[in-house]
Write a protein that binds this DNA or RNA. Sequence first.
DNA 1: ATGAAAGCGCTAACAG
DNA 2: CTGTTAGCGCTTTCAT
Lengths: 318, 318
Amino acid sequence: MSASLGDVAALAKVSKSTVSRYLNDGYVSSDKRERIRAAIESLGYVANRNARLLRSNKLNSIALFVPTVEHPFFSCLADRVEKFLYERGVRMILVSSAGDIAKEKEMIDMVGEKMVSGCIVVTHNLIPNLPENAPIVTIDRHFGPTIPCITSDNYEASLRALEYLYESGCRHIGFIGGRPLVPSEVNARLAAYLDFCRKYQLMPVYSYETFDHGQEYEVAKAFLQANPNLDSVFCGSDLLAYSVYQLTPKSLILSRFKIISFDGITEKLFSYVRLTSVAQDVTALAKMAVEVLLDRLAGKPTKEKYVIPTRFIRGETA
Amino acid sequence: MSASLGDVAALAKVSKSTVSRYLNDGYVSSDKRERIRAAIESLGYVANRNARLLRSNKLNSIALFVPTVEHPFFSCLADRVEKFLYERGVRMILVSSAGDIAKEKEMIDMVGEKMVSGCIVVTHNLIPNLPENAPIVTIDRHFGPTIPCITSDNYEASLRALEYLYESGCRHIGFIGGRPLVPSEVNARLAAYLDFCRKYQLMPVYSYETFDHGQEYEVAKAFLQANPNLDSVFCGSDLLAYSVYQLTPKSLILSRFKIISFDGITEKLFSYVRLTSVAQDVTALAKMAVEVLLDRLAGKPTKEKYVIPTRFIRGETA
DNA sequence: ATGAAAGCGCTAACAG
DNA sequence: CTGTTAGCGCTTTCAT
């Protein structure tokens, strides 16, 4: 068995409390401090986290729930969330829920079991009966007025991108997006598109169905084939936009066909072209999610919605 | 405060041990069983995991260490590992270590603290002084003879792919790969290439440097520009291969220029072309890693190396 | 089949 | 500054 705090105390000839204080920034005289240090080293002592958490109820780990970590947006988000949590000494449990509602419901159990102190979630399902003060924040999803939602300025950003297309002369602007299964800020992208069409008296031409990650290319292909007369497409994700890009003859791009994407986070994957895009600030989203959740855990009041500004990036496709 | 096992016992008028047995598949008479069930329900009782782990030392969570979860190979791996662990009731802590050795060393602490029961790791650094029986398995990395390594049949698969190019008439075959910083099975891909060149008396033309994720396109571009006379390239990753694909005029591909990639897992991202590739079976790698680690935790003997077969997928590029 | 009692390893009052 | 005394919530002998 590994050494316990008691073993350290015995070897250093001090009380367990003194060792505990040594471990937790308490005041310990320098001679004892040194004896404890030596004892810890010679025993190879490592504090047992379960015991510590059981007793102290301190901040534990955080769970991140995503539909699938294989999707670039979510793997990027996972990376950032992990980094911000790590900076604060908090570990991240990742749940790739694949839309499985039973799995997503476990966020409640994990908190109840005190396995994690809280959750950052972006799920496919609504979780019923969340307590008002549940230690949960969401990205994009609306779970209710008391559960904070961190999101980009989807509506305004989409409108700005669409206006940009309009100013560039586009009058046959299509929209492709993936429809979320739950109330989500993502819907604001379509809402902006529809409002935009109404404003300029344009005929809306769009595809907005629910599909799995991996279907982007097929969805884009079907949309373009069904609507050959477009002069531009506003896409709800990078993956859709790259698909449209691949499906369009290079000679037409920019001059006679424009593409704008939403997300703007896949430059590491698709370095061969800089898409014109509404770039979500995933780092800021992650940071805000972490901060709001920690505030909430600390009992501070939190808002219903936190909006992170996007950046419009002029690339080579619009 | 939330209800404890003691509260349940009191309400159900049984002892704490009986409740504990109820919770752990012990024999409990049916009347008490029902009383306990009712008490648990009315109190909304959830077992405290920390207390349980402290006392029982049972199987806890597992940590997965990857260089960066943003890379498609690792996000895919993370997804599969999470799923297999979840099936067995084990949670996954994800550490995206970014090559930070201090962060990677924490795998030792996390085990020592009993925060996790074990780790599945693919790191950028060697972790010194790992105990012989450390509850750790690696993917591709060699940490020493007593730490199991799960890997694909890199050497044989690479050779097979190269022979395929040779049989297709290629005589100017280049190789691009990312050099790992630690002893890794990945190096077998280059080794196979060099052996292959020796066998057929071909001049090796390759790039094998360490670079960060996101640099693939630049690396491929520099390589192709420096070596314009190649008739084919064998790439150490999908991302390199897609970069080569993008950099090559479509009219040349297959007829006068062939590309083979290693990994073969990014079809969800790059649906517009089916690369000819050596496809790693990430699902099998993940499953094996989980099984070997759990075996090890159960005290069963484990081997030094587990080799997962790859599949050669004939796509549109070779 | 059940209960009493003893701790897992730690932290948190409370005295001194 | 330090030690003593109690537990945190659970599982696990050991009786019965």
